[in-house]
Each structure stands twice: as structure tokens, then as C-alpha cells.
């Protein structure tokens, strides 16, 4: 479904050139829970940005359903991210003046079907009692679960999660990972983390060090 082919990301920083991702080739298949692991600065977040079209590669290519992402127009890339992808970031950022439910509806406003699905999701995730709460009334774990709901509600093909458990305690971290893993029934999930424990359930784990893929990657 999504393939990176010898993809690299190089950028200048102060007086040096940083190679964040160095000729990495990975594959994400439908229904997979894929982990990307590595220590801080290993390039795992950069790889996720390349895969999701948030960054464009310096060399190599990222193909989604056989279409090269960096050859798409910016509008097409935006549409791809909006319709086909879902995002969960390290910090569970919610718009402070919107309720939890309204934050979830940001994925696709003005859509009754998405609205209905959001209500179902809140029920499934056991968050129904939080729907009308504003973000400042939610705990970190609750906020991140709302972010996961936001990433899922429009039923994307792939959810990209960048260190989704980094700001959470162990219990909440596992709860969020379980939630993400459950999405396999609908599409693929790519999770970036430095905590191997969180990827115990992953179908495939890629390890990165200094921007390079470390072989062999684990496949379950």
C-alpha cells in the first residue's frame, strides 16, 4: 500500500549538513501494525513525515498505491493526508476552545456520517462521558485518546502515530497503543516509538540508527 524506496532526507543545519534519513526502504501493507523504532535522533520521526507526505524526500521516493507522493501537487498531497491518512502526534494537541467531540470532528467537519461515527467511537473507546468536555478538563491520557479518535474517525487507510505514548504514563501509553492496534481491521497503523515494549503486538518493526535502517527488522 505504501512503499519507501531508498528514500533520504538531507537538510542544512547551521554549518553542517544533516542526513536525517539515509536511503531507507520500507513497506506498509493493508491491515498491518508497523513499528518504527530507534533512539532519539535516529530519524524515525523524519521517516514518518516522509511516509505521510509532511516532508518531501531529498532523494528516493515514497509511493502510496503506486503514486509517487512528491510528484503530486501540494493540493493532491493535502487531499491525500486529509482523506487517506490519520495523524497522532507526540503532544496530544486539541483545539482549546472546542469540546472533545468537536476536536474529533475536525477530521471532517460538516459530515453527518462522520459525526455519527464520532459518537460511536466515543462510546467504543469508553469516552462518552468526556464528549462535551473542553481539553483543559481532560487528563493527558484522555487527550491522547481523543487524538486517536480524531485520527480514526474519517476511517483513513493509514494512521501515522509519532511517539504517541511519549507524554503518557505506562498504563495510558498501553491503552493508546491497544487503541491504535485495534485499527488494523480498517487500515494500517504506523507507530514511531523508542519504547520496544509498546511494539510487542506489532506485525513488523523497523529499527533505525543514524538515519539508516538496521537489519534485520523484526517481522511477526
Amino acid at each position: 500500500m505504501l512503499v519507501t524506496d531508498e528514500v533520504s532526507l538531507v537538510y542544512p543545519e547551521a554549518d553542517r549538513v544533516v542526513t536525517a534519513v539515509d536511503r531507507v526502504s520500507v513497506e506498509i501493507r493493508q491491515g498491518e501494525f508497523v513499528g518504527i523504532m530507534g533512539p532519539s535522533g535516529s530519524g524515525k520521526s523524519s521517516l514518518l513525515y516522509l511516509m505521510s507526505g509532511l516532508k518531501l524526500p531529498t532523494s528516493g521516493e515514497v509511493r502510496y498505491r503506486n503514486r509517487v507522493i512528491h510528484l503530486m501537487s501540494e493540493r493532491e498531497r493535502m487531499q491525500l493526508r486529509r482523506r487517506e491518512f490519520g495523524f497522532v502526534f507526540q503532544q496530544p494537541y486539541l483545539l482549546p476552545y472546542l469540546t472533545a467531540l468537536e476536536n474529533v470532528l475536525l477530521a471532517e467537519p460538516n459530515n453527518r456520517e462522520v459525526y455519527r461515527r464520532a459518537l460511536e467511537l466515543f462510546e467504543q473507546l469508553g469516552l462518552s462521558h468526556l464528549m462535551n468536555r473542553y481539553p483543559h478538563k481532560l487528563s493527558g491520557g484522555e487527550r491522547q485518546r481523543v487524538c486517536v479518535a480524531r485520527a480514526m474517525v474519517h476511517q483513513p487507510q493509514i494512521i501515522f502515530a509519532d511517539e504517541p505514548t511519549a507524554s503518557l504514563d505506562h498504563i495510558n501509553g498501553h491503552a493508546v497503543i491497544r487503541l491504535l492496534a485495534s485499527y488494523r481491521e480498517h487500515g494500517a497503523v504506523v507507530v514511531v516509538t523508542h519504547d520496544p515494549e509498546m511494539l510487542a503486538d506489532a506485525d513488523r518493526v523497523y529499527s533505525l540508527r543514524d538515519g539508516k535502517l538496521v537489519q534485520p527488522s523484526r517481522v511477526q
Binding site: T99, P109, L119
Partner: peptide
Amino acid sequence: VPEASVNPL
């Protein structure tokens, strides 16, 4: 959830 807006934007 009567107060939830379908268009949060």
C-alpha cells in the same frame, strides 16, 4: 450532546 457543533471550524 446538543451543544456539539457539526462544524467545529
